[in-house]
């Protein structure tokens, strides 16, 4: 991978993220790849706080903080305004959490990508409403404790597969990325930047505060999520061409679960059934990639 701007920083120190915040790392890597000819829309999420209060801003690019469910729509308007002014070059990016993407912002996102609006939508995924104190979202994985799935009511529903939902819109580019694989993340961001139409990047962003783990585990946990195929790294072009970017070496999910407080209530049996679900999802992805290869 060739990136000529690795040393450039478009994010200042002094942000107000928690120690070990995966979303802060994700932002830093993304902006290194996108550069400063970028306008960013941030609907309500952890980053509404992390970016800093008035009159400070930790980002060295124009930022438009927006209402929770408006990520797709506000970006559409920013793009349209720049286009009518003759500026078709500036990259317009929406930067939203999983709540703003999977749940409350899904309608506006679906609308925007159905119109194939020319922008990049990035979801940094910490798998719950962390900014409001760890409530479950439709991105919260099977088995997880949150403050609204407490005790014996831990979440017994699967995580919504947001990338496949976006792929179903047949957008030009959809990809997953991880803070533990920064080169892959930045390559995908750069690739997205050089394309037109609606582009979606889903970044796995660990959250020590919400997941019940030490802050220094943030990157390791994110890496394990990829290695176990809980969060596979892949990309899909035009809703058809699947490329799997990382082939795991058979790590089991129980190692990943054992390190996080949010899963400590799970029994061996629970973990076995989760392992089956993860395997099933991975095999499904392999089939999709394989089917795409055979027909291309």
């Amino acid at each position: 991978m060739q990136l000529d701007n690795l040393n450039r920083e478009h994010m200042c120190s002094g942000h107000v993220g928690c120690p070990g915040c995966g979303a802060a790392l994700a932002m830093r890597f993304l902006l290194k790849a996108l550069g400063n000819k970028t306008i960013m829309i941030i609907p309500a999420c952890c980053w509404s706080i992390i970016a800093g209060p008035y009159p400070q801003s930790t980002l060295k690019i124009p930022v438009l903080h927006s209402a929770f469910e408006t990520g797709g729509a506000v970006a559409s308007g920013v793009r349209a305004a720049h286009d009518i002014k003759g500026d078709t070059e500036t990259t317009v990016v929406t930067w939203a959490g999983d709540g703003g993407t999977f749940d409350i912002g899904f309608q506006a996102l679906s609308g925007a990508v159905e119109r194939n609006e020319n922008f990049i939508y990035v979801c940094y995924d910490n798998e719950a409403y962390m900014n409001t104190g760890v409530q479950r979202s439709s991105s919260t994985p099977y088995g997880a404790w949150t403050t609204t799935t407490p005790g014996q009511h831990w979440k017994r529903l699967r995580k919504k597969n947001i990338v496949e939902a976006l792929v179903a819109h047949r957008i030009p580019y959809a990809a997953t990325a991880s803070i533990a694989f920064p080169e892959d993340l930045m390559r995908k961001a750069k690739k997205a930047k050089d394309m037109a139409g609606s582009r979606f990047i889903h970044i796995f962003s660990s959250c020590p505060t919400g997941w019940g783990m030490p802050s220094e585990m943030s990157v390791k946990i994110a890496r394990m999520a990829v290695q176990t195929t809980i969060f596979p790294l892949y990309e899909v072009e035009d809703g058809l061409r699947y490329t799997i970017n990382y082939t795991p070496k058979g790590y089991l999910v129980n190692e990943y679960f054992r390190l996080q407080g949010r899963f400590k209530h799970l029994t061996e049996e629970d973990l076995e059934s989760i392992q089956e679900m993860v395997d099933e999802d991975w095999n499904l992805l392999l089939r999709k990639a394989g089917v795409a290869l055979e027909t291309s």
């Binding site: 306008i39 438009l64 927006s66 469910e69 408006t70 506000v74 308007g77 920013v78 305004a81």
Partner: peptide, 9 residues
């Protein structure tokens, strides 16, 4: 929401 983005631009 779209106009909020456009007017901010």
């Amino acid at each position: 929401a779209a106009l909020i983005g456009a007017a901010s631009s």
